[in-house]
């Protein structure tokens, strides 16, 4: 039996979607910068979507945990993913280029923002990029990059090297490509 189509014109003219596209929201960063963004792009963030639904937005949405520079990056990402007619392949390429130039500190900021705003695609992409940078690097490199201090004694350190000898061979050059 054919399913009855209640909306024969199709979803392209769904009035609610249209409204979201034209309606803009203002996002306010921790350092007071304001950014305009279409609602359809903003709600790709589950956290923002919830705020809009709960109508606690009141025009301006404050994001006290995201600084302006990071928020600008996140908005670039959201706009691309809300773009009409952007193919999956195009988005995939964009994602790759989007994170490829970022320095580690920026990646951290973006991964925190993506986690806070609940933007799963961006979170996945940045996580992967951070992991790619860490792959096969020496312990020293990871410590330096991530500002981690060892709390092992020199003896323990030697012991660890022995215990994890299998992991220490074949370390890549520490040049961060």
């Amino acid at each position: 039996m054919a399913r009855k189509n209640r909306n024969p014109v199709g979803k392209n003219v769904d009035p609610e979607a249209q409204k979201k596209k034209t309606r803009t929201l203002t996002l306010k960063s921790s350092d007071g910068q304001e950014f305009s963004i279409s609602e359809s792009a903003a709600v790709l963030s589950i956290a923002i979507e919830n705020m809009v639904e709960d109508d606690c937005a009141g025009g301006v949405i404050p994001l006290p945990l995201v600084d302006g520079g990071t928020l600008a990056r996140v908005i670039t990402y959201l706009n691309k993913h809300a773009e009409d007619g952007a193919s999956d392949e195009e988005k995939r390429k964009f994602d790759e280029e989007f994170v490829s130039g970022m320095e580690m500190g920026v990646l951290f900021d973006v991964v925190l923002a993506a986690n806070y705003l609940d933007i799963r695609g961006l979170l996945r992409e940045v996580r992967r990029r951070i992991a790619d940078r860490m792959k096969n690097k020496s312990v020293e490199w990871v410590r330096k990059t991530f500002h981690i201090e060892s709390d092992f004694t020199p003896e323990e350190e030697e012991q660890m090297k022995k215990e994890f000898a299998w992991a220490w061979e074949g370390v890549d050059s520490d040049v961060d490509d």
Binding site: M134, K137, S138, V139, S150, F164, A167, W168, E169
Partner: peptide, 24 residues
């Protein structure tokens, strides 16, 4: 997030990250 990042690492990298500090 941290654990999700480590989960993406190859075996040897995880072995090395175990040597970072006690908590790791």
């Amino acid at each position: 997030i941290l654990i999700d990042i480590f989960l993406l690492l190859p075996l040897k990298s995880i072995g090395k990250c175990r040597c970072l500090a006690k908590s790791y």
